[in-house]
Design a protein around this nucleic acid. Structure first.
Lengths: 210, 210
DNA sequence: TCGCGAACAGGATAAGCGTCCTGTTTGGGG
DNA sequence: CCCCAAACAGGACGCTTATCCTGTTCGCGA
């Protein structure tokens, strides 16, 4: 049943590489177009894989989705949010910088696809509980990292008067929601505004005008 | 081709009623399961309509989606957010009350389906520009109403030191994002936390601990 | 009362979907 | 070198999808 008429039959088994290409293609597609709006045929074409190969690595579309969440979405949050914030001078600096950097990137690439985690969260949380658990775990990790940085600042005397966990929740919620508005407006301004307002909310409570 | 074997053929033309039932069913389904995850067959069954009737009122699924946004989502935001906030004593009261009321409702009904507008925003904004424009318009209206209430408070001397438009953006973003987290956690706590943090951020900047 | 357009019934249709199956190729361990 | 499990090819399969078509029924205006 294999192809024989084509000139050179050159195939090399590369399980790790093909698997990675499939998850990459799925991450890209799920994050931009959505899980249900993406067909497995699209993914096969994007990754240059055949049905047999896909079925071998991922028996079902759901398995691919779970792999995307574990192998890509979690890392994306780690790279774009957690590491920059933790390595910044202060929590306020880090949070503001992340908002600004992402807004700049969106302007540069000219379109807003939204936060991959939020996109999948809204689409899949109620669809399947396995998805929901993974998504929630990423949100928990995200909030915990921001809260940790805030607490570190407080212990160093750089910040006062905030509940670390609560404010971290506000930060993550603001980002997620601002990205939703940015996606609807196709304009990153909402992100910059929220960054500014969060900075204001973090300032120590002394008499100062704007 | 019509049914003749069935006992009593009782049909009454009710264009307005059937149309409303279709849009209701679509709103319910799109808001909870999502647009792409809902088939038109599901909608026909939920509304008790036949293919011919659906096609008569809505030539395509997209037409139904646009009607849902115009006739239901916009009103839902008006009812659950804009009117309560505008009619509250102060902006701070209104915002806090809406967060709390919705959190209570979610606890009572035991599951979190999320904000209909945000759900559709993330799923459809990049899918189709007609959807995107309608969604953005609702966000704009939403933010403007909250900003208006804040400005009214300021003019009455009840509030100071806030940029109305900017803070309204933070409020809407926080709600949208907190609802996303609540959906992933299936727990309304994120909403209560954000309400509390927004209240703190609205307090005049005097020396007071928590 | 009657006619005509709007409202609706019910299925046809073609394309697309996710999954699975059989067969072939690869490459590392014995 | 050989062999066998893993890796992959390619398509069949059954089901669902959204749309559309023809035919029937309703109900308002005249």
């Amino acid at each position: 049943m294999a192809e024989r008429t084509r000139a050179a039959r050159v195939r090399t088994n590369d399980p790790g590489g093909l698997r990675r290409r499939l998850v990459d293609a799925a991450f890209e597609a799920f994050a931009t177009r959505g899980y249900h709006a993406t067909s497995v045929h699209d993914l096969k074409r994007a990754a240059g894989a055949t049905g047999g190969a896909l079925a071998h690595h991922f028996p079902s579309k759901k398995d691919l989705g779970l792999a995307v969440l574990q192998d890509r979405v979690a890392d994306a949050v780690e790279e774009t949010w957690i590491r920059p914030v933790l390595s910044a001078r202060t929590a306020a600096d880090g949070i503001s910088a992340v908002f600004t950097r992402i807004a700049d990137e969106l302007d540069r690439q000219g379109c807003v696809s939204g936060c991959p985690l939020s996109n999948l969260a809204l689409e899949l949380s109620r669809h399947d509980d396995d998805f929901r658990r993974l998504i929630d775990a990423v949100f928990v990790r995200w909030r915990a990292a921001v809260a940790e940085k805030i607490r570190t600042d407080q212990e160093a005397g750089l910040l006062e008067g905030l509940d670390p966990e609560a404010f971290a929740t506000l930060v993550v919620a603001s980002y997620s929601g601002a990205m939703a508005m940015a996606k609807a407006a196709q304009d990153a301004q909402a992100l910059r505004i929220c960054a500014e307002e969060l900075s204001r909310a973090m300032q120590p409570r002394s008499a100062s005008l704007r």
